[in-house]
Nucleic acid binder design. Structure first.
Lengths: 124, 124
DNA sequence: CTTGACATACGAATTAATTAGTACTAACAA
DNA sequence: TTGTTAGTACTAATTAATTCGTATGTCAAG
């Protein structure tokens, strides 16, 4: 079965990153982390996390009085879906032109490529 | 409130791809190309191209009765910006984890990497 | 028991993205 | 000349993303 097309909106992604990082988090945890970067209301965070739960990105269960949220899928799985969507949309599904851009713009050098290939090969 | 995209939205990108491909295009050109893939109204295409002009992605000049639109920037430039935005948003600015994903998911093999490095080196 | 802190539920407001309808205009063909 | 065609301008409707306010409930401290 083909994996679902997972695409997070920018704010959803920002929140998911924090939950992945922590393994589990309450609205308050995420709220406080976000507050350090920008002004945001507690209820805004709550709404977003409720949406993420509705969409199936987060699971919740009660912990004391508040909900504790956990990721429903691994970061690798979801980020992988976002990469696929990006490559489909921008490069019609081919990863090569993306790599050409990365190399040409010097965001990646040959050394990086070799290192990563070695790393991945070792981990298999 | 939804923050404005500083990159191309999906439909904007679809249209820009067609204009880049052709070098220049009228609303009708783009309309007919899009129609082959999906149902769309002529005026919808017109609106989008007007927006693209307002945002500075297209330049127009009159040709006979209709406007002829041209890209204001090269495809490489704009796509490069989209890649940067994606890497910033998803990977906090580092291209390496993106490459790791691509290799692990087998969308890129070592051969591809070598080929591209050679290609880029030659072209410099 | 009352009050304050903290949590959720619900709903509304705002802005962006997308689509398309209607009115008007100029060229062109009959 | 008159009706048809092809174009633009303007307006509006819809959906999604994001933000936040208000109402309400519960628990715990005083």
């Amino acid at each position: 079965m083909r994996p679902r097309h997972n695409t997070l909106t920018p704010q959803e992604l920002e929140i998911m990153k924090l939950v992945w990082q922590r393994g589990a988090a309450t609205v308050r945890d995420v709220y406080e982390a976000l507050l350090e970067r920008r002004k945001i209301a507690y209820t805004s965070v709550m709404t977003m996390m409720k949406i993420l739960e509705t969409k199936g990105y987060l699971k919740k269960r009660r912990q004391d009085r508040a909900f504790l949220y956990r990721p429903a899928h691994s970061k690798n799985q979801i980020i992988g879906g976002m990469i696929r969507e990006f490559i489909d949309r921008v490069f019609n599904g081919s990863a090569q032109p993306l790599l050409v851009h990365l190399v040409k713009s010097r965001r990646l050098r040959e050394k990086d490529l070799q290192k990563i290939v070695r790393l991945v090969e070792e981990s298999e």
